[in-house]
Amino acid sequence: MELFNYVGIDIGYVLIGTIGFSIIMFIMLIVVLVKQNKLKKRYNAFMEGNDAKSLEKVITERFNEVDAVKEKLQVVDGRLEGIDKILLTTYKKMALIKYDAFREMGGNLSFAIALLTETNDGFIINAMHSSREGCYIYAKEIVNGQCDMILADEEKQVLEKAMSK
């Protein structure tokens, strides 16, 4: 009391402030208890589950399903890695040019075809057709987009066309 007199605060104001604070705290306690009761009811309803199944059982089943999906995903990832390796060696790029090799009447029956992998490895087949002399077929190997042999103009065109894809 002496402290309040020393500071110059009336004890009545302190008492009214304390009672007001207690009332506010009491109201807040009631609000918290009501909210807790509602939450407890919702929790109990949630834990009951459907058709007499417990929520724990449902959650356990879902975790088991997730584990099974993870295992299958690992198997699929392994298979995809193998497929990716195989795809690096498959022919993905292709180009075809038809032309008249001997400038004869009869159309563009000759052709050059290039088949290349992703790394531009593969081959060119050049089939030159002549109505008088028959058909000549040549195959040339391509490594990294280059050929050790001299390429005809049509072969160069078909190689460039295939590599640009």
Rank of each mutant, 00 (worst) to 15 (best):
I125G: 02
M163L: 09
L151N: 01
D67T: 09
E81T: 12
L29K: 07
L116H: 10
S54G: 06
D100S: 15
E141Y: 01
A52W: 00
Y13D: 15
Q146L: 00
V76C: 09
F21G: 13
E141W: 02
L87T: 11
K38P: 00
L109K: 15
Y6H: 15
F26L: 06
N108W: 05
E155P: 01
D121T: 09
D51Q: 14
R132N: 13
E104L: 11
L29D: 01
Y43I: 02
L96R: 08
N64A: 14
V14R: 08
G20M: 09
K38V: 10
G8R: 15
T119D: 13
K92H: 07
A68V: 05
F46P: 01
V32K: 14
V58D: 13
T89K: 15
V158F: 00
E61A: 09
S164H: 08
L115R: 14
I137R: 15
V66W: 02
F111E: 13
K165R: 06
N144S: 01
A45P: 01
T119M: 13
I27V: 11
N144D: 03
I24V: 07
M105W: 12
V75G: 11
F102R: 08
K156R: 06
I27Q: 05
Q146V: 03
T90D: 07
L73F: 12
K165A: 01
N126S: 06
F102N: 14
K35N: 11
N37P: 02
E81W: 07
A139K: 11
L87H: 07
Y13G: 02
I11P: 12
E2K: 15
D77L: 12
N126K: 05
E104C: 12
K57L: 12
G82Y: 09
M1L: 12
M1D: 14
Q74N: 12
G49M: 00
N120T: 03
N50G: 02
V58H: 02
V14K: 15
D121K: 06
N126C: 01
V75R: 10
M28S: 05
K161G: 00
V58F: 03
N5E: 15
I97V: 14
G12W: 05
N5H: 14
I125R: 12
Y91C: 08
L73R: 12
A95K: 10
L159W: 06
L3S: 09
F4G: 09
I24M: 03
V32R: 10
S22A: 05
E104P: 13
V58T: 14
K57W: 05
A101F: 10
I23D: 04
T117F: 06
K140L: 03
K41E: 02
E61G: 13
K85P: 06
I97Y: 05
L15Y: 12
V58K: 13
Y138E: 04
E56C: 12
D153F: 01
K35E: 08
Q36M: 08
K70P: 04
K35M: 07
K38T: 12
E61M: 10
Q74R: 13
L96K: 11
A101P: 00
V143Q: 04
I97C: 06
C135E: 13
K70D: 08
D121I: 00
G12P: 03
I113T: 08
F21Q: 13
E56A: 04
Q36G: 07
F46R: 03
L159N: 00
E65S: 11
N144G: 00
D100A: 15
L33H: 05
I137M: 03
I27T: 08
G82H: 09
I125K: 09
